[in-house]
């Protein structure tokens, strides 16, 4: 068995995974941003409200609120932009291919012939922004491929397309 399928002259140029073709829906940035805003904003508001009533502890409550706000700022402002740049997906005739993550970038590929279920989930925030998350599971407990932040109509089309393709493929997918 050959070590690599390439000819020696090509071997000097390193291989890498190309980014998948499609970006997420631009609304995903706002969706992530709102999520983080709620996550950090809620304790912030609670702390500020307490600061109005608990005068002796006011200074510390304000400091705590400030700290939460400061910690949340990069998550609200920068992380959604990074995520939007990194998150990509592609569905070819043979496979579903995604790239996710920033600090830990992750490329996942699941071949059509091994796909078992195709689901969409829509949380309340996603519904508000008209988005949906598509999850493609294989027989592996750890092989699920998730595409978040898709336009919900596009997501429905994808699910239909994937279901048709996988039903046409024989085998028990293990």
């Amino acid at each position: 068995m050959p070590d690599t399928p390439e000819t020696p002259s090509e071997q000097d140029v390193p291989l890498r995974l190309r980014p998948p073709n499609n970006q997420l829906d631009p609304r995903a940035v706002r969706w992530w941003r709102t999520g983080f805003l709620l996550l950090f904003g809620t304790p912030c508001v609670v702390l500020l409200a307490l600061a109005q009533f608990l005068l002796p502890a006011r200074l510390w409550l304000l400091v705590a609120a400030g700290a939460v706000a400061l910690a949340g700022l990069p998550f609200v402002v920068l992380l959604p932009l990074w995520w939007y740049r990194v998150h990509r997906w592609e569905i070819t005739g043979d496979a579903v291919y995604t790239r996710t993550g920033f600090f830990w970038q992750e490329w996942r590929v699941a071949p059509m012939s091994r796909i078992q279920t195709v689901d969409t989930q829509r949380g309340p925030l996603e519904q508000f922004f008209g988005l949906a998350t598509v999850t493609v599971t294989t027989a592996s407990a750890k092989g699920a491929v998730t595409i978040p932040g898709l336009d919900h109509e596009l997501a429905a089309d994808l699910v239909r397309q994937l279901t048709e393709t996988t039903q046409a493929t024989p085998g028990d997918a293990t």
């Binding site: 970038q105 992750e106 490329w107 699941a110 071949p111 092989g143 491929v145």
Partner: peptide, 12 residues
């Protein structure tokens, strides 16, 4: 033939 997908993961 039992491999049904690949995941590549890379930290910064």
């Amino acid at each position: 033939r039992g491999i049904i997908g690949w995941t590549a993961k890379q930290s910064i």
